[in-house]
Amino acid sequence: MNIFRFLGDMTHLISILILLLKIYATKSCSGISLKTQELYALVFLARYLDLFTDFISVYNSVMKVVFIASSLAIVWCMRRHRVVRRSYDKELDTFRHYFLVAACLALALLVQEKFTFLEVLWAFSIYLEAVAILPQLVLLQRSGNVDNLTGQYVFFLGAYRAFYILNWIYRYFTETHFSRWISCVSGLVQTALYADFFYYYFISWKNNSKLQLPA
């Protein structure tokens, strides 16, 4: 494992911890898209079914369990927690995420490394992860004001994607048989979706002002 991959995993983990901290400390999920969280839970469940078939390392297995458990916990809190669910911005979170699921499933059936159950699910999870942030970005755009923790959450998620791209570039040059064009193309699309957010994040950071997205 190279340093970029490790930093990518760590920023991903930090983003989830920030989200859990926000929900736990403020007992509020305002500004957070339940649809994006549901998509992530689906992404992890579909991709990490290989927990039962392929063993890579203890690190990989532990991280997979952490990602599945935390994403389910977040969805559960937003839907069922007596206090937290009241702060959910339901009227702003109207992105039709089922279309994303259907489109990604169709794409995975057409484009995958091998037409097996696990490979189709794996490709599906990669495609879905690439676009899963869309409902969250739309929600932030609509609400305009972004609270600190929500801003940090999206920032670290974007940083995770950026580190993974560096990781692929590194692997491309250091490993003889590295070709993961499905992950790489999807990863580039996913990171590009953050470009706009990053732009406004850095502006607010530079001006030391509150993060605001244009309507």
Partner: peptide, 10 residues
Amino acid sequence: GEAVGVHDEL
């Protein structure tokens, strides 16, 4: 080389 079906990234 890496076998198809083994995904070592998260």
